[in-house]
């Protein structure tokens, strides 16, 4: 994806500049920083690779049409909850998610359900949960994901009121 690579180049260049500045100021501290970076990367490695495999499975094996029929089915509160739940559990790349939401809206799906879907999709990563628990602890991860779900529903309901 184009925007990802631009972002990556910007970040890499920025970090390289910071690294050089750090190296000029203190070799010892820079070594320490790199050690911290290395340990964190090692710690996250297996989980992150597993996440990538799971994302691949979701993208490859759950056709957007299934998601469309699951979300488009019910217009009431059940439909909103299904949309929010699918958004939380699935990981769908933005390049697929937004056109999907657009076509669903064109097919007559509710704004509320679409807002719930997009919001939980970005805010909650069920796929990331094991890593989040590992890094930040069970309490933090459960509270963040749980409250994000509630907030996503509130955002969706407000959007339904404002845009309907």
């Amino acid at each position: 994806m184009f925007e990802v690579s631009v972002t990556a180049i910007v970040i890499d260049a920025l970090v390289a500049a910071c690294l050089v500045a750090s190296l000029v100021k203190s070799r010892e501290k820079t070594k320490q920083a790199l050690l911290i970076a290395f340990n964190a990367t090692k710690r996250m490695g297996p989980s992150v690779l597993a996440i990538i495999a799971v994302i691949g499975i979701i993208v490859g094996f759950i056709p957007p049409e299934w998601i469309a029929s699951a979300i488009g089915g019910d217009k009431g509160i059940v439909g909103i909850l299904i949309a929010a739940f699918l958004g939380a559990v699935l990981f769908i790349p933005a390049i697929i998610a937004f056109p999907l939401a657009k076509s669903l809206l064109a097919m007559g799906a509710g704004v509320t359900a679409m807002a719930a879907f997009i919001t939980t999709l970005t805010m909650i990563g069920f796929v990331f949960l094991p890593l989040e628990i590992k890094e930040l602890g069970k309490k933090f991860a459960i509270l963040r994901n749980g409250l994000s779900f509630i907030v996503a529903i509130i955002i969706a309901l407000l959007m339904g009121l404002i845009l309907a």
Binding site: M1, L14, A33
Partner: peptide, 26 residues
């Protein structure tokens, strides 16, 4: 499709994760 998606995210990981971790170390 699975391979393509995983590869995309793997590339993103390789280009972004080490840099952000170094930033964190600094």
């Amino acid at each position: 499709r699975t391979a393509r998606a995983s590869w995309e995210y793997f590339k993103e990981l390789v280009f972004v994760l080490p840099a952000v971790m170094v930033m964190m170390g600094l």
